[in-house]
Amino acid sequence: MSAPMLSVQQVSVDFATEDGTVHVLDGVSLAVGRGEIVGLVGESGCGKSTLARTILGVLPPHISTVSGGRVVFDGENLLDMPHRRLARDVRGRRITLIPQDPYQAFNPLFTVGTQIMDLMRTKSPAPGGLSGRARKRFDRDRVIQVLEAVNIPSPAEALKKLPHEFSGGQLQRLMIAMAFLPNPELIIADEPTTALDVTIQAQILRLLRNMADREGVAVIFTTHDLATAYQLCDRVVVMYAGQEMEDADTDSFFASPRHPYTYGLLGSIPGKNAEVREIPGEMANLADPPSGCRFRTRCARAEVRCAEARPPVTECAAGHVVRCFNTANEQVAT
């Protein structure tokens, strides 16, 4: 891969809470190449949304601090970029978001058309010299074309409707359309299919894949479901307690997973006849994380050194990294 389009380097984020400082992200790194779909996989509370917010520069003010690292996008560190420039040039324009809950993303009082055309006016680059009516017509054509691409029936009619007149699946497709409309380079999809039925989920995944391929857009897709990442993504990054534990291209990841937490996740997926195995214990307390490896309190293979030092992030095969002392780990037969 040439230089990645986005690289998150050793990013740490703290939240100030009643229970003290919570280290929500702890030196997390990942990279996204042009047109690549990266799956960010982890259980709830592991920091997926926080990482998405860090990249977009929308962490909750006052309580959050980025205590280290860089987010390099097209050669620039977004964490240093002045807020106004980030808001004007990057967020919603070059990097867009598909949120989990489409009902929250739309204003219930305005038609979908009003909201989408507004977005086009403020966020989408118009071809040189277009203004006034010509600009409006151009925007409208692009909107109709993209709504058709995401299978919204009769797009011109759909634009006149209010958000609540759509089903959940249709609203999710509208959200996808809106994320693609400004011609972004990167889309962050934060668990966009978690609440949907499998049939609709399959449609949304296919749509996302086709649109990303068609428009050459990279996607960070967060999910707690490894099987979804398997189907959709080019790369998989498994996250636990604010750190990436394993990162590999999808084929290598599933052919030879290395991290004990990854085995735990794989073993707890209901399969054909297999018994499901629980991961013992509970998610690490981020206000007071275990010394050394954050996963060690739940790890069947923890050794003394796992408590004494932080395991290094090691490349165990080309492009396959794992945060564990024992990089020679083989999965226990399943």
Partner: peptide
Amino acid sequence: PRIGRPGARREIGGAGDIPA
């Protein structure tokens, strides 16, 4: 969604373009 055997072709299964 299902995880296939190593080397299997990965594809999104499901409902085609049948309306929801």
